[in-house]
Amino acid sequence: MFKRILFLWALSLSFLACEEVIQPLPSPQVDSDRKVLLEEFSGGNCQPCADAADEISNLLGIHGENLIVVTMHTYLPAPQASPAPGATYDFRTDEGTEILNILGVPFGIPTGGVNRRPLGINDSRLISPFSAWAGIISDELNRPPLVDVGLETTFNAADRSLSINVNILSNADLNGDIRLTVMIAENDITDKQLTDDGVVDFKHKHVLRDVISSVSGDNLATSLSTNELVNKTYSYTIPTTDERGPWVAENCEIIAFVTLVDDAAGEQEVLQAAQVKLSE
């Protein structure tokens, strides 16, 4: 009996029979033409959202211009999505809420979509926790862009008029519903945010102000051949202020991205993105 038990226990130790080959960590910096879009969903009354903002700074420090971030405050029916107590502004927008609805319904915030691809658990396009963004962004940087997006802006400070010129050059033969989305976001807006240290004045970054194109993207083409060029222009006037507070033009940035959309399947992915700061 004892021998039998000993034998079986020894057999179970065969679980540990081989020592695993440990692989070195890859370099976080990826040499890529790809610009990855991170659409973050945040809230003023959400303490982990402040930590997510720090993580975004960290990721921008690593990936630089290869990472494009837009932070959306939405009307998600959760107390965390509301402005923090004592906040001067309410950053929530209908457009951000509409985009969140396109990507799915999260367990909570912070959450984020990377290139609108189903890269989260259970093929969700919303990825939580925010600590998981880094690995997915690195993966996405290794995927070559199927289109190039050139983005130029002309801003007239006197009348705050903005002209946006977007050139899209296809790197492959593409078929399907190809759309262009153009947004405006603002950096360095100081207002209240719930953090580990309670509600404090916080520098909000990449805050979505408006979607200049249609929210689901303007139709660009139903097919593109390799090296085919498409151009789109937009005109926009940057408000001096609205119900969400003053707009500081030099802190604003324009984001443009091309999506391939399959409405019937409820799927889409960002093929490439671009960003220009108005202060540049």
């Binding site: 890859p26 960290n58 998981a132 880094a134 690995g135 997915i136 690195s138 993966d139």
Partner: peptide
């Protein structure tokens, strides 16, 4: 594993 590696590498 790959996703974890890329995460920790950051």
């Amino acid at each position: 594993y790959t996703q974890l590696q890329n995460t920790v590498a950051n």
